[in-house]
């Protein structure tokens, strides 16, 4: 088993023929991801990267059997793309787009409530199950196959964690980039839960940052369910000033619960192996598993 995406995933790219969509679709195909086509309204019937282009997600589902979608649509149209994928019956919707207005995301998140699907992102690097499928923009070679799951709000920090895990002698089962926006489809707890329930995952790396309560919520859930697998955790932004947005739309300290210290304290109390330095993720995983 793996989480969210695997070798059987039939992936479509929304925003297929745009420059971002084209570049990353090529990279995904090269990695071995089963990309069955893409969607660009008005270009249905054409071929792109040797794969069919559809006008609608509905067509892609009906004609190519798509069940996973990755979205590179520009911010102004991205929420609409999410809702279109949901309406067409896509099961896993991964949204890479950064800068979607909060109001649009609120609408999209409400729209998908109660539907049998998982939205990952927006503003995330995507999801990778090494050796099976890369549905994202991460450098695939960093992620060697193994038994450590990763959940992270950040892109390059996810690569950093994966690299350390691999150098420590382990590998990755699935890495889920949940995204750095204030409203995201899969909060930390939901992503951790998937990895806790996954047979192939033996331990988890959980990386958060300042702002919001997702990490604290996940930590409490991990404790309540009996710390079934070791979790190594880090929160970026201990040195970030209050009230300033640090790159990610969601990375802002609005109150005392938003700080890295407050989150790390709760994580520590919930039995998570908290690292103070992001350079210690790999080493700490070694200790946690010994």
């Amino acid at each position: 088993m793996s989480v969210l995406v695997n070798k059987d995933s039939k992936v479509i790219v929304q925003g297929f023929t745009g420059s971002e969509g084209t570049f990353h679709a090529e990279q995904m195909i090269e990695y071995g991801t089963n990309v069955v086509g893409g969607v660009t309204p008005g270009k249905g019937g054409q071929k792109h990267l040797d794969r069919p282009v559809f006008n609608t997600v509905e067509d892609a589902v009906r004609e190519a059997g798509a069940n996973v979608s990755i979205i590179f649509v520009p911010p102004a149209f991205a929420a609409d793309a999410i809702m279109e994928a949901a309406d067409a019956g896509i099961k896993v919707i991964i949204t890479i787009t950064e800068g979607i207005p909060v109001k649009d995301m609120m609408k999209a998140k409400t729209y998908i409530q109660g539907k049998d699907l998982t939205l990952v992102g927006p503003n995330c690097p995507g999801v990778i199950t090494p050796g099976e499928a890369k549905v994202g923009i991460m450098p695939g070679f960093v992620f060697k196959k193994g038994k450590i799951g990763i959940v992270s709000k950040s892109g390059t920090l996810t690569y950093e964690a994966a690299d350390q895990i691999v150098k420590a002698g382990f590998g990755i089962s699935t890495a889920i980039g949940i995204g750095g926006d204030p409203i995201i489809g899969t909060p930390t707890k939901e992503a951790v839960k998937m990895l806790m329930e996954d047979d192939e995952t033996e331990a988890i790396v959980m990386i958060g940052e300042i702002g919001g309560n997702y990490e604290a919520e996940a930590a409490r859930w991990i404790k309540e369910t009996g710390n079934k697998k070791p979790v190594v955790g880090f929160i970026a932004g201990k040195t970030a000033p209050a009230g300033r947005r640090m790159g990610h739309a969601g990375a802002i300290i609005g109150g005392k619960d938003d700080t890295a210290e407050a989150k790390m304290k709760i994580m520590d109390e919930c039995g998570i192996f908290v690292v103070q330095s992001p350079a210690d993720i790999g080493e700490t995983m070694k200790k946690a598993l010994s």
Binding site: S154, T156, E160, E209, A236, H248, A251, S277, P278
Partner: peptide
């Protein structure tokens, strides 16, 4: 730094190394 999360993490490392 490239990436917001890694940028924050790098700031934290500077602090742990004795700088600000």
């Amino acid at each position: 730094v490239n990436g917001a999360g890694l940028a924050m993490a790098t700031m934290d490392i500077i602090k742990l190394s004795g700088g600000e």
